[in-house]
């Protein structure tokens, strides 16, 4: 087991999957972080050296990920609503934001577009 940012990952877990399990890290950022620390794309957590794990943790600590990233998203939507722009209003109403039709097929918008969006 390897401890990364307070989470235990099994040795067999690919590093790229472990990194992408954090909210706010996608394929591109994960690849860049790995290249920065000379980790091959197929490396698994168990193959990392201690120094690499510490460096990764240090890097992740300084990034806007997990709750901080979710908060940032909510702040952005709140700002839109507060200035009462169209996008803010649509978010508040739970409607599609980017000009889509609303007669049918707006399930996703109803689910996601809200001011206190979970992320």
């Amino acid at each position: 087991m390897v401890l990364l940012l307070g989470i235990h990952f099994p040795d067999s877990k690919p590093v790229i999957k472990a990194l992408r399990s954090f909210y706010g890290i996608g394929p591109q950022i994960a690849a860049k972080i790995m290249a920065k620390h000379y980790i091959t794309p197929l490396a698994r957590m168990g193959s990392l050296e201690n120094k690499q794990v510490l460096d990764l943790t240090a890097d992740l600590t300084g990034m806007t990920i997990e709750n901080e990233a979710r908060r940032q998203l909510r702040r952005n939507i709140e700002r839109l609503r507060d200035i009462k722009c169209y996008r803010g209003m649509r978010h508040a109403l739970g409607y599609p934001v980017r000009g889509q039709q609303t007669q049918t097929q707006i399930k996703t918008a109803k689910k996601l577009n809200k001011v206190d969006r979970r992320g």
């Binding site: 000379y38 980790i39 091959t40 794309p41 197929l42 490396a43 193959s47």
Partner: peptide, 8 residues
């Protein structure tokens, strides 16, 4: 092919 580890 990036199948083994590397470093400077």
């Amino acid at each position: 092919n990036a199948s083994t580890d590397y470093g400077p």
